[in-house]
Write a protein that binds this DNA or RNA. Structure first.
Lengths: 107, 107
DNA sequence: GAGACTCATAACTTGCCAGTTATATAACTA
DNA sequence: TAGTTATATAACTGGCAAGTTATGAGTCTC
């Protein structure tokens, strides 16, 4: 299952958003939803297989974290469409690190 | 069906890419694929209902065009993850119109 | 107006996906 | 070692999505 398919499910998108905040154990994720533990475990497998998540072991626990690479590929897929909607310069600036910041005020 | 679900299908993504190049009649799109005309018609309905495409009539024909708004929403959804991968400044520049172009060469 | 053309919808089939419960696996704990 | 905890997998079910063929609806042409 590719990243687009993985993102089609709202539960998986929510997991991604939670993993963006911080890494979490499978159990923590289960507690955040009303569906069963195996259902979450399956979603985590999909996220793993699509490259969006990974885990490290911590005793019995599995600590999941986000892998943003597939998201960056979707970002690149969007490239060809970006000219079709207005880009706010301040949004662009937000994504630049301090060191790369545009110097529109100082120029 | 939301935009994420609509994008999950590779045929629909391909239709979107074709409509990005130029608007096309339903029949033109059908010729570009091996699946049946009703199957494409259904994909077009999904794209319409998710706001990604629209058509105008031209006699019997229906000329489909891309509506980029849902793509821009996905672009915004990606905002919170953008800090997680490297941003190339030249890619940012590509998305700026000439009038807004960064002046790094001239400055 | 009859037939051709273009496209959508109806009706149906099939396969997959997301959920369930039950169970297996692995690691910790007493 | 027995029991508990944490997570994955197995087996199954139900629903939906995507495909098919057949047909309907609207528009053009002769």
């Amino acid at each position: 299952m590719d990243a687009f398919e993985a993102l089609a499910d709202p539960t998986r998108r929510q997991i991604i958003e939670m993993l963006c905040e911080r890494e979490r154990s499978a159990g923590e994720l289960v507690e955040s939803f009303t569906i069963s533990q195996p259902a979450i475990s399956r979603h985590l497998r999909v996220l793993r297989e699509s490259g969006l998540a990974q885990y490290r072991g911590d005793a019995q626990r599995r600590i999941y974290s986000l892998n943003p690479t597939p998201l960056s590929e979707i970002d690149r897929w969007l490239d060809r469409y970006r000219s079709l909607w207005p880009h706010r310069l301040d949004r662009l600036e937000e994504h630049l690190t301090d060191g790369q910041a545009l110097q529109k005020d100082q120029g």
